[in-house]
Amino acid sequence: MMSETILELRNVAKVFEMGGEAPVTALSGISLAIEDGDFVAILGRSGSGKSTLLSILGCLDLPTSGEVLVRGQDVSSMSENELALVRNREIGFVFQSFHLLPHYNAVLNVEMPLLYAGRLEPQKRAAEILERVGLGERLWHFPHQMSGGQRQRVAIARALANNPHLLLADEPTGNLDSRTGQDILTLFHELNATGATVVIVTHDHQVAAVARRVISLADGSVASDRRSMSPGGFQ
């Protein structure tokens, strides 16, 4: 059975005009496809173009050339408001610095994408997801009352709120200690096991090793694309 291609990039390039200086090519000739249910790590050092690729995968930015297809639909010519809709419905983005609103508690933070989707009973759904990621005891706590790992979980819960087809995480363990980081990676594993398609962008080999497929990025293009045969990833 062919599983659905959630996200596909066809010959994507991104060039930045730098004013008076020569233009910078951040990405060139990127072609890849993310299948439903997959667990992918995009590995690259800083300067490899992984941040740019991340923005394009997350539909926060559009390529200079090439096509981006989200579940078969080409988004490369969409308006900003149309892209916002795609981000709301199809993609759950977990930012490296979490970007939680400090004056909102956990439930209010997780509610946000639900409200923008016009969803009924947002509070109930928010509480459900927070429980799913293990924060049932901290529903009404504010970010400053939580540890780094707990904030990360709130960010993940928010990303999952609208039941997106793709969960996209930027350096998910970057701001955490190794033990908490391990817990978070385990959470991603669990989520993937229950059907979520997960893409992690990282510079850390050990983090990338938990995925089943590792795409290595260097100097703006794909250096390698390897798949592990074992369900536990490359560990």
């Binding site: 926060l60 408001n81 609103l101 994408p113």
Partner: peptide, 15 residues
């Protein structure tokens, strides 16, 4: 940054 975040998770310009 808050505005950026809201747009990133789905707020339209009108929102």
């Amino acid at each position: 940054r808050e505005i950026g975040l809201r747009k990133a998770i789905g707020a339209s310009s009108r929102d």
